[in-house]
Write a protein that binds this DNA or RNA. Structure first.
Length: 879
DNA sequence: ACGTTCACG
DNA sequence: ACGTACGTGAACGTT
C-alpha cells in the first residue's frame, strides 16, 4: 500500500472558510471564524484520508512573478479584508502548534508549491490529495493526484473530488488543458483576463477541437463562432499572457523534507492552549487527557467530609472578608459545596450523612451574615439559602455579563481566563462531560468535587478584577443599583410563580383540537393528498409545485412558507387561509395549551425562570416557560390569558409603560418638537402624522396615523427604508420619503441616531442613560450586511437598553416598597414594559399607588413616563 | 444541532 | 449588488 500525502492550499481554504462562515469572534473580539472553519474541514479530510504526510502551503504577501506580470498589465489584486488578514498569522500559529508543516516561498505562489510537491510525491509513488477552493488546481490532477474542492450548497459543505477521469467528464478536457481553457475564458477570481467574448462553452469547444491555444491560433480560420475567431485574432496576446498566468509552476526550487511533514500527534499542549484562547470549545474535546496542560494554578483542593472539620472551616470562613462559594445544586437538590478562602485554599464538602444539604445551606446562611459571598450565580444560591443580602454578595455571572453582554453563557472557566490573569482551568464539561450535577453525583464522580473547587476558586479570585473593571467602565452603579437588587426581586418572582387553571387550559386545548382536525381535513381535500402541514418542506412542494402557486424561492432549504409570503402570493387561494389558520391553532395548542400545561407545578402555579444574563441590550428573558410571549394581539390567543389568575383573596393589577422607548428617545435626543408633542398630545402617533404630513391634528386619516406609527417603531429599531417598506407594504422609495420627512420634522432625532452610530464606531460600544454598555463588533465589519446591522443596533440598543434599565429600577422599587410597607401582594411577572402584581384585595389602593409612583418615578426624563393600569380577575381582564 | 416559523415587547 | 427592521424563546421538522 503506497503512502499518502495531503497538501492544503492554505489561503484558499482560509478564504473559503472566512466567506462561508459567519464572522466569529472570541470574547476579546479577535476574529477567529476562518481559522475555525479551516480546522474543521482539515479534520474532516484527515479522518477520511488518514494520510501519512501533511503540508499546508501559503502565499507570501509580496506580489509573485505571475501576479507582477498581470499587475503590470492592468490594475492590482483585490485586498483581503482586515478581519481575514489578521487571521493568517493565527492560522500559521495554530498549524505550527499542531506540528503541521507549512511551506511558502518568496516569488512563488502556494499553487506552485503545491504543484511542485504533488509532482515530486507522485514520482516517489505516493498517492496525493490536494485540498483547495481554487479550480485552477484541477490542472494538477492525474490518476494519482486527487484534487478536492469543498463546495457549500444549501448551507452544507460537500466536497467534489477530481482525478483525471472526473476532470475529463466535467470539463471535456484533460487536466493540463484546464490551463488552455483558462487562457481563453479567463478567471476573474484569479485575475486572469482571458479573451473577451469567450466563455466556458466556447472555450471548451475550442480546446476540445484544437487541444491548445497555440494550435487553435494556427488554425484560426477554422474556429467556429465568428465572434470567437475575431476575438482570438485580435487578442491572441491576451490568451498567451493568460496561459502564463494560469500555469502552475511544478518545478519550484523548494527545499522539502518529508520527515518534517510526517503526520504526528496534532493534539499537543500548545494547540490545546491556542484552541482555548480562541475559544474553539468543541474542538477541545478532541484533545487527549495528556494534552490537557497541568493546571496553571497551584493546586490546593481539600475534601472536607467530617463534621468537626466543616464547623471549623465555616468559623474560619466567617473571619474572612470574602468567600468564594460554589453550591453544587439544581433547583431541588444540593449535592455539595465548594468554598474558597484563599486562592490556594479551596475546600469541597460533599453533601451526605450529617453534612446534609440543609445543614450546608444553613451554614451558608450564617456565613452570609458575616462575610461577603462571591458566587457565579447568586439567584441560584438564593433558591437554597435564605436571607442573603445584596450588601454581602457578589454575583460574578452578572458582573461578567455587564462587561460583555454578547456571550451566550458565562462559565467559570471563561471568567477565570478573563478575570484571573489569563489562566486556564478545566471546565465543567471537561470534568463532568454532559452529565448533570445529579448524574455526576450518582456516579460518585470525583470530578464533581474538583469542579466545585474550580468554580469556588474562580468566584473567589475573579471578583477583584471584575469589580475593578465594572468601576473602570462606569458600570459599577448599574451593577449595584440595578442588577444586584434585581437578583432578589426576580428570585422572589420565581418563587412566587403565577397561578394557572390547569383544567381550563386543557379545555381550551381541546377546543383547538376540534378545529385543527377540521382544518386538516379541508387542507388534505384541497391539496388532493395527505401530508405533514407542519413541514415547510412538504408544504412548499404542495403549494408551489403541485398547486402551481407562482412566486419564488426564498430560503436555503427551499420555498419560504412564512405567513407574510403566503398572504402576498395567494390571498385568494382558500387553502392558504386554511393553512394560516391551521398554523395559528397548532401554535396555540403546542406551545401554549400543551406547553404551559406541562409546567404547572404541584402548587398549581407556574414558576418561570427570569434570566438576567441573556440579552445584549439589558432586557430580562423568561424561560421554562417563556411567559413574555403569551398571545395578546389576536383574540383567540389572548383568551389563554384567562387561565392566569390571582390566588383567592387577590386580584391582578397590571401596569404597563406607555411608549416607553419613544419617550426615552425623546429624552435622549433632546428633540424639542417630540418632547413638546408628548407634552400636548394624547395620541403621539396621530400628532406625529399631523406634523410629518402637514395636516391638522383632527384631520389625520387612519392611514396617515398607521404610517406614522410604523415610522415611530422603525426609528426605535434603527430605521431602514427596506424594513419600513416591508412593514407597510410600500416601495422602498416611498418608505425612504417617509423617513426623510420624519427627520425633517424631528431633526434632533437624526442627529442623535447618527451620533450613536459614530460613537459606536469610535468606541466599539454604545451606552444607555445609566451607563450600561453594548459592544458592537459588527460596526467594524467589511461586510455591508453586517455593518448595516451594526448601525441599526447602535441606534436601537441605547433606547431599548435605557427602557430596560428604567423598568428594572421600577421593579426593584416596587418590590422593596411592598416589603417595606409590609404588604402581602407580590410582583409575579415582567413583560418588558409591563408589571403584573398579584394584589391582596385590601391592598389594591396601596399597590396602585406604589406602581404609579415607582414606575413613573423610576427615571426623570424630559417627558413624563406614563403608565396604563388595570385591575382584573385574570391576566386577560387586567391587561 | 440547525433552520423555519411564530408568539411577545 | 448586496438583502435587513430591534430584542427574545419554544416547537417542530430536517440534518
Amino acid at each position: 500500500m503506497s503512502e499518502k500525502i495531503l497538501l492544503i492550499d492554505g489561503h484558499s481554504i482560509l478564504n473559503r472558510a472566512f466567506y462561508g462562515l459567519p464572522d466569529l469572534t472570541n470574547s476579546e473580539g479577535k476574529h477567529t471564524g476562518a481559522v475555525y472553519g479551516f480546522l474543521n474541514i482539515m479534520f474532516r479530510i484527515l479522518e477520511e484520508e488518514k494520510p501519512d504526510y501533511l503540508t499546508v502551503a501559503f502565499d507570501l504577501h509580496e506580489p509573485t512573478f505571475r501576479h507582477k506580470l498581470y499587475d503590470a498589465y492592468k490594475g492590482t489584486r483585490k485586498g483581503m479584508p482586515p478581519e481575514l488578514v489578521e487571521q493568517v498569522p493565527l492560522m500559521r500559529e495554530m498549524l505550527t502548534a499542531m506540528g503541521i508543516k507549512t511551506v511558502s516561498m518568496p516569488g512563488y505562489e502556494a499553487d506552485d508549491l503545491l504543484g511542485t510537491l504533488a509532482r515530486k510525491s507522485e514520482q516517489k509513488g505516493m498517492e496525493v490529495t490536494i485540498l483547495s477552493g481554487d479550480r485552477d488546481l484541477l490542472q494538477l490532477a492525474t490518476d494519482k493526484v486527487m484534487i478536492r474542492l469543498p463546495k457549500t450548497s444549501k448551507g452544507k459543505t460537500t466536497i467534489e473530488n477530481f482525478h483525471t477521469a472526473e476532470v475529463l467528464e466535467k470539463y471535456q478536457v484533460t487536466p493540463p488543458q484546464i490551463i488552455e481553457l483558462k487562457a481563453l475564458m479567463g478567471d476573474s477570481s484569479d485575475n486572469i483576463p482571458g479573451i473577451p467574448g469567450v466563455g466556458e462553452k466556447t472555450a471548451t469547444k475550442i480546446i476540445a477541437q484544437f487541444g491548445s491555444i497555440e494550435n487553435a491560433h494556427e488554425h484560426l480560420e477554422e474556429i467556429k463562432p465568428n465572434k470567437a475567431k475575431e476575438s482570438m485574432r485580435e487578442h491572441y496576446d491576451l490568451a498567451v499572457l493568460s496561459k502564463t498566468l494560469a500555469t502552475i509552476n511544478t518545478e519550484s526550487p523548494l527545499e522539502y523534507s518529508y520527515e518534517e511533514a510526517r503526520l504526528g500527534n496534532l493534539y499537543t499542549q500548545q494547540a490545546y492552549e491556542l484552541c482555548r484562547r480562541l475559544e474553539f470549545k468543541n474542538l477541545l474535546g478532541r484533545f487527549d487527557a495528556e494534552a490537557v496542560p497541568e493546571n496553571t494554578i497551584e493546586q490546593n483542593f481539600f475534601v472536607c467530609s467530617e463534621l468537626s472539620g466543616v464547623e471549623a472551616l465555616f468559623e474560619k470562613a466567617a473571619r474572612n472578608s470574602m468567600a468564594g462559594i460554589a453550591l453544587i445544586a439544581d433547583k431541588n437538590n444540593v449535592y455539595g459545596l465548594g468554598i474558597a478562602l484563599e486562592k490556594e485554599e479551596v475546600y469541597y464538602i460533599p453533601a451526605e450523612g450529617l453534612l446534609s444539604g440543609e445543614y450546608l445551606c444553613e451554614k451558608l446562611r450564617k456565613l452570609g451574615e458575616a462575610t461577603v459571598i462571591s458566587a457565579m450565580d447568586i439567584k441560584m444560591l438564593l433558591k437554597h439559602v435564605e436571607s442573603l443580602e445584596p450588601e454581602r454578595v457578589f454575583d460574578l455571572g452578572i458582573g461578567a455579563y455587564l462587561l460583555n453582554p454578547l456571550k451566550s453563557s458565562y462559565t467559570y472557566e471563561d471568567i477565570a481566563r478573563e478575570y484571573i490573569g489569563g489562566i486556564s482551568i478545566p471546565s465543567r464539561e471537561e470534568l463532568l462531560g454532559k452529565d448533570t450535577y445529579e448524574k455526576a453525583w450518582e456516579k460518585s464522580s470525583e470530578n464533581l468535587g474538583i469542579c466545585a473547587c474550580y468554580q469556588a476558586f474562580t468566584a473567589y479570585a475573579a471578583r477583584e478584577k471584575t469589580e475593578a473593571e465594572l468601576k473602570e467602565t462606569g458600570m459599577w452603579q448599574v451593577y449595584t443599583d440595578i442588577e444586584l437588587p434585581l437578583v432578589f426581586t426576580l428570585d422572589s418572582m420565581e418563587k412566587c410563580g403565577i397561578c394557572v387553571k390547569g383544567e381550563e387550559l386543557k379545555a381550551y386545548g381541546e377546543r383547538l383540537s376540534v378545529r385543527i382536525r377540521e382544518l386538516e381535513k379541508l387542507i388534505y381535500e384541497k391539496a388532493g393528498e395527505e401530508f405533514n402541514i407542519n413541514s415547510p418542506k412538504q408544504l412548499g412542494v404542495i403549494l408551489f409545485e403541485k398547486m402551481g402557486i407562482s412566486g419564488g424561492r426564498k430560503t436555503k432549504t427551499g420555498y419560504s412558507t412564512a405567513a407574510d409570503i403566503l398572504e402576498k402570493l395567494a390571498p385568494e387561494q382558500p387553502v392558504v387561509n386554511d393553512i394560516l389558520e391551521y398554523r395559528q391553532l397548532t401554535k396555540l395548542k403546542s406551545t401554549y395549551a400543551d406547553g404551559l400545561g406541562a409546567v404547572i407545578e404541584e402548587d398549581g402555579r407556574i414558576h418561570s425562570t427570569f434570566n438576567q444574563t441573556i440579552t445584549a441590550t439589558g432586557r430580562i428573558s423568561s424561560t421554562e416557560p417563556n411567559l413574555q410571549n403569551i398571545p395578546v394581539r389576536m383574540e383567540l390567543g389572548r383568551l389563554i390569558r384567562k387561565v392566569f389568575v390571582p390566588e383567592d383573596g387577590c386580584v391582578f393589577l397590571d401596569a404597563d409603560y406607555s411608549q416607553i422607548e419613544l419617550r426615552v428617545l425623546a429624552h435622549m435626543s433632546g428633540d424639542e418638537k417630540l418632547i413638546q408633542a408628548y407634552r400636548e398630545a394624547e395620541d403621539i402617533h396621530r400628532l406625529t402624522a399631523s406634523q410629518v404630513f402637514h395636516v391638522p391634528y383632527d384631520e389625520v386619516t387612519d392611514l396617515q396615523r398607521r404610517n406614522a406609527k410604523a415610522v415611530n417603531f422603525g426609528i426605535v429599531y434603527g430605521i431602514s427604508s427596506f424594513g419600513l417598506s416591508q412593514d407597510l407594504s410600500i416601495t422602498r422609495k416611498e418608505a425612504a420619503e417617509y423617513i426623510e420627512k420624519y427627520f425633517e420634522t424631528y431633526p434632533s432625532i437624526k442627529v442623535f441616531l447618527d451620533r450613536m452610530v459614530d460613537e459606536g464606531k469610535e468606541k466599539g460600544y454604545v451606552s444607555t442613560m445609566f451607563g450600561r454598555r453594548r459592544p458592537i463588533p459588527e460596526l467594524k465589519s467589511g461586510n455591508f450586511m453586517q455593518r448595516s446591522f451594526g448601525e441599526r443596533v447602535a441606534m436601537n440598543s441605547p433606547i431599548q437598553g435605557t427602557a430596560a434599565d428604567i423598568i428594572k429600577i421600577a421593579m426593584n422599587r416596587v418590590y422593596e416598597r411592598m416589603l417595606r410597607e409590609g404588604l402581602q401582594s407580590r410582583l409575579v411577572l415582567q413583560v418588558h414594559d409591563e408589571l403584573l402584581i398579584e394584589t391582596k384585595k385590601d391592598e389594591v389602593e396601596a399597590v396602585s399607588r406604589i406602581l404609579e409612583e415607582e414606575m413613573k418615578g423610576a427615571a426623570r426624563l424630559a417627558v413624563e413616563l406614563e403608565i396604563d393600569m388595570h385591575q382584573g380577575e385574570s391576566w386577560y381582564e387586567a391587561k
